[in-house]
Design a protein around this nucleic acid. Structure first.
Lengths: 152, 152
DNA sequence: CTACCAATGTTGGTACAGCCAACATAACCT
DNA sequence: AGGTTATGTTGGCTGTACCAACATTGGTAG
């Protein structure tokens, strides 16, 4: 359930006006909503799973290192999550014949189907998360936060 | 080498347009800046320490449960961090004589001084974090993200 | 007054995101 | 050939955020 801090949970003015604090709270709220969505949807899939599936579906097969760089997930974490995804049959790994140290990761049909389901969950969360804003405000916010997110 | 897939296009479009993703990235950036600041200037103090000190300075002495509620930090975490802060001489805990199960926490002079130092670090991080935005955009962003952070 | 219930502080544990060090293997580059 | 870089993997660590259980204390209903 979201927002376990009950009523009266104010923040010190010192924090309240600070961007990093507000972003942190907004992130916590979004994170909670996503967690609730993923949990309600059953399987133990988490943010990392979704990110990797999305990247694979979006750009097609790629090596683990590439997928890691494109999602901002560390190589070691990519390995672990991919092992899980492979065990679930959502992804296939095969050694690149042209470069035997690389493993080409491909999303399976089941993986793509699962991704579509997760998409709905994530979209629902977006609506819930952005509910406090009007349509115009949402556009504004997305533009601004994109600048702050930084592209790297 | 094949597939340096695109110049900057890092995140899948699926994620890139989503508020929760962008907020997550912005949060990661802010968190990294804060960590760097704390590591450079606050020996071993982290976000929880700062939050508690700020709350205590802002609202004066309070019980641990109250401070926890006001900062959104769990009771158990409050206990641990407060033990650390007390060991550093930045706060004092004393049993409430009118209610012996409560412990009144008070910030010390040293704690207040430390808080001022941390304030500067945090302020510097704010400037760095908001650097991509103009002054007008910063005001806009703060308003919008405050709505998304959830006031309750 | 007693019995129950609520709040508090504490201990100990989990989950997730993120990061890093070390290693073996493989490819690349003089 | 030798040195460097890239890759996948293992294992570990931190910080934020929760949760469960417990003893102590307060408050309240009977």
């Amino acid at each position: 359930m979201p927002t376990p801090h009950g009523p009266g949970g104010r923040s010190p003015a010192r924090l309240q006006g600070r961007a990093t604090w507000l972003v942190s709270r907004a992130h916590a709220r979004a994170f909670g909503l996503l967690n609730a969505g993923f949990e309600a949807h059953g399987d133990g899939l988490r943010g990392y799973h979704y990110r990797l599936l999305a990247a694979l579906e979006e750009w097609g097969p790629a090596s683990q290192a590439e997928v890691g760089r494109s999602t901002g997930i560390d190589r070691s974490d990519v390995t672990a999550v991919l092992t899980d995804l492979e065990a679930r049959g959502l992804v296939v790994r095969s050694v690149d014949p042209a470069n035997k140290r690389r493993k080409i990761v491909t999303i399976t049909e089941r993986g793509a189907a699962r991704l579509l389901e997760l998409d709905e969950v994530v979209d629902g969360v977006q609506r819930e998360f952005l509910a406090p804003l009007t349509a115009a405000q949402r556009r504004q916010f997305l533009d601004l936060v994109a600048l702050l997110a930084g592209k790297r």
